[in-house]
């Protein structure tokens, strides 16, 4: 059901933009490309990458959120809240704005974002060993996020104006930044991260009983934790690299999916989060295109508008 809805919304989204395009042109633009037709060109260069990015980004962030929530047994965990996005931002900021161009190319940015996400993930994991309280861990995540944000500001203060502009646009969160030939990297990495999560389904299910019970059912808890952090870093890192830090999706979608599916089986939850996340971002994109097709509203504004109230509601219900 979700899948059908997603496909139809994706098609609908493809028709939207600064001017509307018919379905036949969309089909031609993707499968039977003719560069002399403006409509097909637009589909190929702008819309198709935008919509596919929306699907992949939403799915990837939601899976990452689900993994974090299970790992920390906390419904409010998510890549953004725990500062994993901020880790990515920091390294991307360093690589785009500082004088060391360590990670110059596209792949370099992806690598930088992943390393940042992974570092932040390890830091939070390390803290989780010492901090038992769920709320304290979230606070540490938020503090880590602020700290990384402050470092980014310092870097911005010294940055070259052109680089600064690039970075600021990136940090608003956007689906427009991905070009057709970059879709390949994004797809491969997201699929890899998603497959890694599917492999972890069984330990994820057992971790719900607590670390000790999981270990006594045959789970190697330390290795699994490490792998979960890896999967989260891969998924969050690649999306952050291409689309900027997108807030709230990873937190809201898994909670919604759990409420709809009423199960703890991560096999279903993973698929649900993938589809639900994709759906949410595609809907956000459709909304943006309908409200202001020429303006390019920042994606983060929209996800926060949807996300923040949901988060408040979860807090009131569960804490």
């Amino acid at each position: 059901m979700l899948f059908v809805l997603l496909i139809s919304l994706v098609l609908f989204d493809l028709t939207l933009g600064s001017f509307s395009i018919g379905f036949s042109d969309i089909f031609n633009g993707i499968f039977n490309y003719d560069s002399s037709s403006t409509a097909e060109l637009t589909v190929r260069v702008f819309r198709f990458p935008r919509v596919i990015t929306a699907v992949l980004a939403g799915g990837a962030l939601s899976i990452a959120g689900l993994l974090m929530q299970t790992l920390f047994q906390n419904p409010l965990a998510g890549p953004y809240v725990l500062g994993i996005n901020s880790g990515s931002s920091l390294l991307v900021a360093i690589s785009t704005m500082s004088s060391f161009y360590v990670f110059g190319s596209d792949l370099g940015i992806v690598a930088a974002a992943m390393i940042g996400a992974f570092g932040a993930g390890l830091f939070i994991l390390f803290c989780s060993i010492y901090v038992k309280s769920k709320v304290s861990l979230l606070l540490i995540g938020i503090m880590f996020g602020s700290f990384a944000g402050a470092l980014v500001s310092v870097i911005q203060a010294y940055a070259d104006p052109n680089n600064l502009k690039t970075f600021m646009l990136w940090s608003f969160g956007s689906l427009q930044g991905v070009e057709f030939n970059q879709l390949g990297i994004l797809t491969i990495v997201v699929v890899f991260g998603a497959l890694l999560s599917v492999v972890l389904v069984k330990p994820l299910n057992l971790l719900l009983l607590g670390d000790k019970s999981a270990a006594l059912l045959g789970v190697n808890v330390k290795t699994i934790r490490f792998l979960i952090i890896c999967a989260t870093a891969i998924l969050t890192g690649v999306v952050t690299a291409f689309c900027g830090p997108i807030a709230f999706v990873g937190l809201v979608v898994p909670n919604m999916v759990k409420m709809i599916y009423k199960t703890t089986n991560h096999y279903h939850l993973l698929i649900g989060s993938l589809l639900g996340g994709a759906l949410l971002i595609v809907i956000c994109d459709i909304t943006m295109q309908l409200i202001a097709p020429f303006m390019n509203l920042p994606l983060n504004a929209l996800t926060a508008l949807v996300g923040a109230p949901v988060v408040m509601w979860i807090i009131m219900k569960k804490f």
Partner: peptide, 9 residues
Amino acid sequence: RAPYTNMLN
């Protein structure tokens, strides 16, 4: 049954 099942449980 987890110790007896396959990877997807």
